[in-house]
Nucleic acid binder design. Structure first.
Length: 543
RNA sequence: GCGGCUAUAGUUCAGCGGCAGAACGCCUGACUGUGGCUCAGGAUGUCGUGGGUUCGAUCCCCACUAGCCGCCCCA
């Protein structure tokens, strides 16, 4: 029997690797706290419409990478089928009787009509298969159900016509309506999606809880898994982890100020430094207001008409579908052409230019190094004005550690108040890879060992050992508990691997209350009264 | 979604159309209340899954699945 494995693009994080993850998360929380960010935890799934409207209908994420499902009550469907089958046992008793035009493949449709739900069973043009299907439907409702659920050829054919409730009728040339049911059969049906990113959820929560009403700037961070159905690669998974933060609020709270952009960028520089990421680079750009961006898109599209035929195949396609993406092209031959294209900086309005100048001036003053990259146009629709990316060499094709930008119109796009904001998302999976690579060079610190290993000799002392371990643990020590069924040799072998000292609890020690402690670092063995044991074990190894 | 490479022991990997291998790790003993170092011995396994070719396939062929690298896109 094939064993069940983690599904493609997902993975387990095990010790000791999880220590690194926790260290990163703890560092991030500390840094965020110093900048007065609070944690927000939003649901892992949201209404599909949220992502369609925020991330952008036309983006790859929404078009083909989301995990989306319908949250209707699917069981009701089978009830309806069985009801239909019973009701028509008589009428469709024979194949000939039932098929004025021949009973075709049977299908189900349901649709929301005026708040109620319509469910329709209909047959299409006759075929040998469809006759068989119907025959089994009449004789056995379970067989019909199986057919409907398993046979793609049957269930895949959708021909829908508006029915008269309860009355069979002719429908389209392709199909004959067999029966229609009308009523509130489906209590609810909603399209849900595993979040592909977290900014949309944060802004949704901001709107839903009226956080803008406080008049205060909201500074929120999150840490959690996101989901995109992409082809897995190193540092890219279908369930991936992001740490991100958002600064959002009403304009009166200063949410549009370039100072906020600079503060976020300076915080990120600090965070990466404190994480020990060496050699990061900040790339910075402004895509301007929504209008600036649209204008540039037109200018770029026009400019590409002449030069695109000389470019790579991908670029020729992008020139039509998404001109901004041409700027991302990595084909060497195309680079001179791209350099000759109009720059987005020339399409920025005065407001956008001034805002961006303030951002860079603040970064200069704070000593945060950056490089301007006019080709940096982020893929998500909601970005405006400042966009940025922190990259790191040694990540292969996936060289972006984190990315983000300003999204002044996002709240309004999903039905909220005017609430400009700026935020970022950091790929935790890649951050871990980067740190692991660095530590491999520097030399990873050995895994932390427990303070002590309590080794009872004989199973009769197991309970006493449990109590001893409990007391040491309550004193704040990390303690592993051995098993009295082990021979002492085995206890030593096990203990040496996972603890700094071993505490032997044999009959002698149990009677006298004076325990035998051996320090693995020095190999010295001492007798320690139980009352002094915790203090003794708390000392560094070798002392 | 597309292209290339890969899949053998717990791990890292050799290997060959004819008995399944190494290192490390693991277990046992030398040593019944003392680890590391050493020595002796042992088990490693559906050779990714399913087909095909062949007297015979872990090896050759095909498909599938998964991983890695690149593309697309993105964190």
């Amino acid at each position: 029997m094939a064993t069940v494995k983690a599904v493609r693009g997902t993975r387990d994080l095990l010790p000791p690797e999880t220590e690194l993850w926790n260290r990163i998360e703890a560092t991030a929380r500390q840094v965020f706290a110093r900048y007065n960010f609070g944690e927000i935890r939003t649901p892992i799934f949201e209404d599909t419409g949220l992502f369609a409207r925020s991330v952008g209908e036309e983006t790859d994420i929404v078009e083909k990478e989301m995990y989306t499902w319908d949250d209707g009550e699917r069981f009701e469907k089978s009830l309806l089928i069985s009801r239909w089958s019973l009701a028509n046992r008589e009428r469709f008793g024979t194949v000939e009787d039932n098929s004025p035009s021949g009973a075709g493949p049977i299908d189900l449709e349901c649709e929301d009509l005026d708040g109620n739900f319509e469910l329709v069973l209909f047959g299409a043009k006759p075929s040998k298969r469809s006759v068989d299907v119907l025959a089994s439907a009449v004789s056995d409702k379970r067989a019909l159900l199986t057919q409907l659920q398993s046979d793609k050829e049957v269930t895949g054919r959708h021909v829908f016509a508006s029915p008269v409730p309860g009355v069979p009728e002719e429908t389209t040339p392709e199909g004959v309506l067999l029966e229609a049911f009308h009523g509130n059969f489906f209590k609810s049906s909603q399209s849900l999606t595993l979040r592909p990113e977290n900014t949309a959820g944060v802004v949704r929560a901001y709107i839903e809880h009226g956080l803008g009403e406080s008049g205060q700037l909201q500074k929120l961070y999150y840490i959690g898994p996101q989901f995109r159905r992409e082809r897995p690669q190193k540092g890219r998974y279908r369930q991936f982890w992001q740490i991100g933060a958002e600064v959002i609020g009403p304009p009166s709270a200063g949410s549009e100020s370039a100072l906020r952009d600079a503060e976020v960028l300076e915080m990120l520089a600090t965070l990466l430094d404190e994480l020990g990421i060496g050699g990061w680079a900040l790339e910075l750009n402004s895509v301007g207001s929504a209008a600036d961006r649209a204008g540039y898109n037109d200018v770029l599209r026009a400019a590409l008409v002449d030069v695109a035929p000389k470019m790579c195949g991908d670029c020729q396609r992008r020139a039509v579908t998404n001109p901004l993406r041409v700027l991302d092209c990595k084909v060497p031959e195309d680079q001179p052409i791209i350099d000759g294209l109009p720059k987005i900086g020339d399409s920025l309005g005065d407001d956008s230019k001034q805002h961006f100048a303030q951002v860079t001036a603040a970064l200069d003053a704070a000593g945060v190094p950056y490089t301007l990259n006019q080709r940096l146009v982020r893929g998500l629709d909601y970005y405006t004005r400042t966009t940025f990316e922190f990259t790191h060499g040694g990540l292969g094709a996936q060289n972006a550690l984190l990315g983000g930008g300003r999204y002044d119109g996002l709240s309004e796009a999903i039905g909220g108040p005017k609430a400009p904001g700026i935020g970022f998302a950091m790929g935790l999976d890649r951050l871990v890879l980067t740190l692991q690579a660095q530590e491999a060079v520097v030399g990873a610190a050995p895994a932390a060992k427990a303070d002590a290993y309590v080794a009872p000799i004989g199973e009769s002392l197991n309970a006493a050992a449990l109590i001893l371990a409990r007391d040491l643990r309550r004193a704040g020590l990390s303690v592993e508990l051995g098993d009295g069924s082990f021979r002492l040799k085995k206890s030593f072998e096990a203990a040496d691997k996972i603890a700094r000292r071993i505490v032997i609890l044999g009959e002698d020690e149990h009677q006298s209350g004076i325990l035998t402690v051996k320090d693995f670092t020095t190999g010295t063995q001492t007798k320690v009264p139980r009352a002094e044991l915790a203090a003794h074990l708390a000392r560094p190894a070798g002392e």
